[in-house]
Amino acid sequence: MSKPLFGLLLGGLLGIFDGLSALLSAPEVKPEIVGIVIGSTIKGVITGVLVGLIARKLRSLPLGILFGLLIGLVLAYIVAALGDGKGHHYYWEIMLPGSLLGAIVGYATQRYGRAGNQTARA
């Protein structure tokens, strides 16, 4: 499995989990949970693909984690800035876990997945 594809799957999976966790931290968002999970999943997928593409070119665990953290932070900021439609913005609640999820995907794509210049052998 290539690193971008691995990042996509892992980012999406963690995004689903991250979105669902909103039920614990903010039960009042239960009516909008489907939209939250979809948004979180898309955020995770984008983070995973970007970090996976970087991992394909750059072989460095610390830098992979750092880029994952930054990409997760930026995307989480965008999501947080959109707000919940009622004027509430959950910056810390979304940005802190979101950046750490990016770091996790950054770590995983550095450790696992096939780099682009590797070829399968029979």
Partner: peptide
């Protein structure tokens, strides 16, 4: 250790956010 630290950090953050809420 790195993976555990990251996942542990994430879960800890989630707990902090939950506690704050």
């Amino acid at each position: 250790r790195v993976a555990l630290a990251l996942v542990g950090g994430y879960l800890l953050l989630r707990l902090v956010v939950l506690f704050a809420a």
